[in-house]
Amino acid sequence: MLDHIQAVIVDLDGTMVDTLGDFVVALNHTLDDLRLPPVDRGLVERSVGKGSEHLVRTVLDHQLALPEVAGSDALALSWPREQIHALALERYQHHYLFINGQHSDVYPGVVEGLQGLLATGLPMACLTNKPLAFAQALLEIKGLDGYFSQVFGGDSFERKKPDPLPLLKTCEALGTLPAQTLMVGDSQNDAMAARAAGCPVALVTYGYNHGDPIAEAPHDWLLDSLAELLD
């Protein structure tokens, strides 16, 4: 798999760390602030991967449309939608700052895979749609920060995955050509960005992909574990 590969870019949420618990807790604190009912894990799992703004907006709009919310004292019902979106994002980021990493776990095989990649001498970057400050903190909390020479978040560039720009900019930072830079991710966002950038892509089978089968996303390899990168 690593033949002709000169660098590796790895996604974070759903690829290295199962952060669904963090998302659910932070979102439910946010919804409670707005006097809205809590969200179920299924909706959160289908909504993650496109950045905090998309996640908060999707969950908020879903909860506002619930029949039991109509006629309630929910704060969000009396405000313009864009204003309540902005407030919800602010409250979510406030809560996430304190929750980050507390309800999440590193997936099996991740440390083994990263250690193996490090031993090859290939430079590695972490590229995620999570805000950079949260990504850096999570990597440090989980002991994964030492594997990456570069870390980029959803606010590091003008656009997020599935746009190819973040991958192209990350390849520039690594000093490698896209065709020789492997993207490792868990969703169609990673797959579409990699294809558009000209990077080969390996997708893990256990992450978040908006409820769709990961095998249907464009890929060169499917992995049950990051440890398989060395096979």
Rank of each mutant, 00 (worst) to 15 (best):
F157T: 09
G198Y: 10
A173N: 14
S72N: 06
S156R: 12
K142F: 09
L43F: 13
Q63P: 09
G51C: 06
T30V: 06
P166D: 05
P131Q: 03
L31R: 00
I5P: 03
Y107G: 11
S72L: 07
E228C: 13
Y208F: 15
E172D: 15
D105F: 12
N129G: 05
S225G: 14
Q83R: 14
F148C: 06
Q102I: 02
G49Y: 00
A135R: 13
L127M: 09
V69E: 04
V25Q: 06
K142W: 09
L165V: 12
Y107W: 07
A193Q: 07
H29E: 07
I141K: 14
N28A: 11
L36W: 01
F98S: 11
S187H: 04
V69N: 00
E228L: 10
R57T: 12
L64I: 02
L34T: 02
P38L: 06
D224P: 08
E228I: 10
H219L: 12
A202Y: 14
L36I: 00
P37G: 03
V111R: 15
A133T: 14
I84D: 00
C126A: 08
F98E: 14
G116V: 14
S156W: 13
S47M: 07
R57F: 02
V201F: 13
L132A: 12
A133R: 15
L20T: 12
I9Y: 09
K142E: 02
A119G: 12
M124A: 03
N209D: 09
S104T: 13
D163A: 08
A70T: 13
A74K: 05
I5L: 02
A137P: 03
S52D: 10
G116S: 05
